[in-house]
Design a protein around this nucleic acid. Structure first.
Lengths: 345, 345
DNA sequence: GTTAGCACTCTTGTTTATTGAGTGCTAAAA
DNA sequence: TTTTAGCACTCAATAAACAAGAGTGCTAAC
């Protein structure tokens, strides 16, 4: 499993060359590229060893070598160095993710857009999870005809609205006290715990409030328990430019996959299975059973007050410039964290 | 320009056959298809005439004929009969567009989804235009720290929220009167005329209210003047199945086009340029300069209280089953109209 | 006006060579 | 023991040649 220094050098060169050219790479190319005093024959021997160990493969006898999933994995884990971004790139990211955005959904949409543009791959961004959101304010909007809208603003500036026609009838004059009651009961509560918060609040009530409580319960009970977070995906059409997707069936698979939000989300979250979330690279759909042999994903968590609340990332062909994209995604995640932390206080 | 009965018959047969097979159609095929006592040679003569007149063309000498844009146009305008939907199809549409949906955006998203599924083409739906929307209710949500959200509910159950930090400071106790003032001033006003409504309202004010008016103006003035309506697009990936898009470049063009919402909207609205809106077929990107030679669009307006307020449609290859899709789109538009009319009162 | 017959055209698919990049292996050199 | 030069071999990709087939246009006969 341990690779010698020379093997590492050559594996690195093969992966790197293949990433830039998309062509199987032969021994002569490597010799020229490395500029060491080695002959093609020597390199061939090493490559044969690497193939035997499962890091490279040949698309057919007597073609150049191509990295396997394992080869990419070794490259990503041990060989590549995360590239430094240029000043221009940093500036661009900071500029596009300006402070002007004033709710988390806008931030995330803009993030996916930015990632797509900056990387020329598909950009993905997940809105902060409800488990990490807290109720900031509740409003009741009377729509006439015994219909109401319940509006819940969270600490990310997001607004959730729910139409309801409660079975109990509520007089106009009761709306204001009910609003106050709901605010008192729910402010600061996790968006995911609204049901419990209301229930526990009721236990402490004096009779005077009990009437309001009944209404509140009937309103809140119509709230769905858990909502899938918004998922923004942009720039997918850029993948069609790439040679690995010249085959229409490949690109069809990928787009069909994009249609299934939950599987996409699952892939994005591969990095938070156990332990603290961190930047994760999924190569060729490893371990996901998603059937996408040809795609890789780089995903980073973003945080609010040091607490990870969602993921952003890019999706592209297995042959993607990992070292550069990792840098872009991580840097962007940092900016998003800063932005949302400020927004959420 | 007038076609003889036989010419019409044959043009119809060519278009219809080409639509189903996607292969250039020859004289023999037509003879078999029509079952008249005509020989291939006769049909050939007629086809040659139709070609000369610009209704058909050959992809190369001695291939079968293929309809031109003009041929499709003649077919759509004079020859095809809008197909009756089966009971099953009607039921399906009614079922999927249930009364459960309680705001217009949900309805339109579901509509685009339904159209995509039912037609196997790309389904498009535009949310009711703001010009046709009326303010139903206004709320102010105080977010603390002199920040407020202005919430405007329209008669379609849609909610627009706006964050603002007014320069004048507003006390908590003033929020309720301000809310009442805004509701009084804006209820029933067209969403597009909010600015004017506030302005004219101020002219009639007693001093007592003038203080509120100043705040109201400062709030409303931050509202954007006109917003592009939501546009829902679904099922685009199904187009990749079709032989005309087997070429990766074609499909790339189409998806790039889908990225440009405004141009897509323009295409959808081709049917409301002058005169009352009606179902419209745009063939091969006719007159739109959108550069999409290979796509056609069928679009129908939907109405609220007999007033057209938006468009829905399907987008597919030029070779699309016009007679069936027209029926589906029109029928769906009818259901959407009924649904929204009920929703909006 | 219609049609049978025929020569002609052009696509599509198949076969056959040719080329070139790249390999594995062996034996000699370091 | 490690490296390398040399050589035979493999395989994809490209081009050329060929056959088959679908369809046409035209002419002359019905």
């Amino acid at each position: 499993m341990e690779l010698s220094e020379r093997e590492q050098l050559i594996l690195h060169a093969v992966v790197h060359t293949y990433i830039t050219t998309a062509e199987p790479v032969g021994s002569r190319t490597i010799v020229k590229r490395l500029g060491l005093g080695l002959s093609p024959a020597t390199v061939r021997n090493v490559m044969a060893d690497l193939e035997e160990a499962g890091y490279l493969e040949q698309v057919h006898t007597s073609s150049g070598r191509v990295p396997t999933n394992r080869g990419y994995r070794y490259y990503v884990d041990y060989l590549m160095r995360v590239q430094e971004l240029t000043i221009a790139e940093r500036n661009r990211i900071e500029r596009e993710l300006s402070e002007k955005l004033n709710d988390a959904d806008e931030v995330m949409r803009q993030t996916s857009h930015l990632l797509a543009l900056a990387t020329h791959h598909a950009g993905i961004a997940e809105s902060p999870r409800d488990t990490a959101a807290v109720v900031r304010n509740v409003e009741i909007m009377s729509l006439g005809g015994s219909r109401f809208a319940l509006l819940i603003a969270d600490n990310y500036g997001r607004l959730k609205s729910l139409l309801m026609s409660p079975s109990v009838s509520i007089a106009e004059t009761d709306v204001a006290p009910l609003r106050n009651f709901l605010n008192e009961a729910l402010r600061g509560v996790s968006v995911n715990n609204i049901h419990e918060a209301i229930a526990s609040r009721i236990a402490q009530l004096t009779d005077e409030y009990r009437r309001l409580a009944v209404w509140a319960v009937s309103m809140v009970s119509t709230l769905p328990r858990e909502k899938a977070p918004e998922l923004y995906l942009e720039g997918a059409e850029q993948l069609m430019e790439l040679p690995e997707f010249r085959d229409i069936n490949r690109i069809k698979e990928v787009f069909a996959f994009f249609g299934e939000r939950d599987r996409l989300l699952e892939l994005l979250r591969a990095g938070i299975q156990d332990g603290p979330p961190k930047t994760t690279v999924v190569i060729g759909g490893e371990n996901t059973g998603c059937g996408l042999e040809e795609v890789s994903v780089i995903a980073s968590p973003y945080c609010v007050d040091e607490e990870p609340v969602g993921m952003i990332g890019v999706l592209g062909p297995r042959r993607m410039p990992y070292s550069h994209l990792t840098a872009v995604v991580e840097y962007t995640a940092g900016i998003v964290s800063r932005l949302l932390t400020r927004l959420a206080r």
